[in-house]
C-alpha cells in the first residue's frame, strides 16, 4: 500500500490538501496508540506510517520526491543536475542578503523565492500528468526533467526557509 492509498487520496502531484488533512485525522483516529489502547510494535509502526505518509504528501518537495520514486525516477543523491539559471539566481540572492541583510532585501527576496516555488510546483504538476501518456525514452526524458525541477525546488525551499527564519 503506498502513501496515497494509505490516506485515500488520488495518486498524483496535485493533492487536495483539505482532503489530505481530513483523511489523515480520520486515519489517526483509527490507528493512533491512544485510540487503539495499546503500544505494541505493530500499532506503533502502523501509526508512524500514517504520520509519515501525511508529512510526506503535505510538503510539495516530499510529495514530488515520493512520487518520482514510485515512477522509477532517480533519487536526489544520484542526480544533482540543476538548471544553471536556478543556481545563478540562488547564489546572487544569497550574496545580496549577505551584503545587505535589511528587512527590505529580505522581503523582496522572499517574494521572488515564493514565486519561483510556485512556478516549480506548476511545472511538476504538468510533468507528472504528462508521464501517464509517455513510454520508453520520452518517459525517461520527462523523469529526468522532473528530477531537475525537484532539485531546483529544493534550492528555493532552503533559501525560503533561511530568509523566513532570519526575518
Amino acid at each position: 500500500m503506498d502513501f496515497f492509498q494509505l490516506l485515500a487520496v488520488p495518486k498524483g502531484f496535485g493533492v487536495d490538501l483539505t482532503l489530505l488533512e481530513a483523511n489523515f485525522l480520520a486515519a489517526s483516529r483509527r490507528c493512533h496508540p491512544d485510540f487503539v489502547g495499546a503500544d505494541s510494535q505493530e500499532v506503533l509502526l502502523q501509526s508512524a506510517m500514517v504520520n509519515k505518509a501525511y508529512t510526506t504528501l503535505k510538503d510539495p518537495l516530499g510529495r514530488g520526491e515520493y512520487l518520482l520514486r514510485l515512477e522509477g525516477g532517480s533519487t536526489g543523491e544520484s542526480s544533482r543536475v540543476v538548471d544553471p539559471f536556478v543556481l545563478e539566481e540562488i547564489m546572487e540572492a544569497r550574496g545580496e542578503l549577505d551584503q545587505n541583510p535589511t528587512g527590505g532585501t529580505r522581503k523582496n527576496l522572499l517574494e521572488m523565492t515564493a514565486n519561483r516555488m510556485k512556478n516549480h510546483q506548476e511545472q511538476l504538476l504538468n510533468r507528472f500528468r504528462k508521464l501517464e501518456f509517455l513510454q520508453g525514452l520520452a518517459k525517461a526524458d520527462t523523469l529526468a526533467e522532473i528530477r531537475q525541477t525537484l532539485n531546483g525546488l529544493r534550492y528555493y525551499q532552503n533559501l525560503f526557509r533561511d530568509l523566513f527564519q532570519g526575518a
Binding site: P33, L44, S47, A48, M49, N51, K52, Y54, T55
Partner: peptide, 8 residues
C-alpha cells in the same frame, strides 16, 4: 516537530 509516533 514531526508528529509522533514517528519512524525513519
Amino acid at each position: 516537530n514531526t508528529t509522533i509516533p514517528a519512524m525513519a
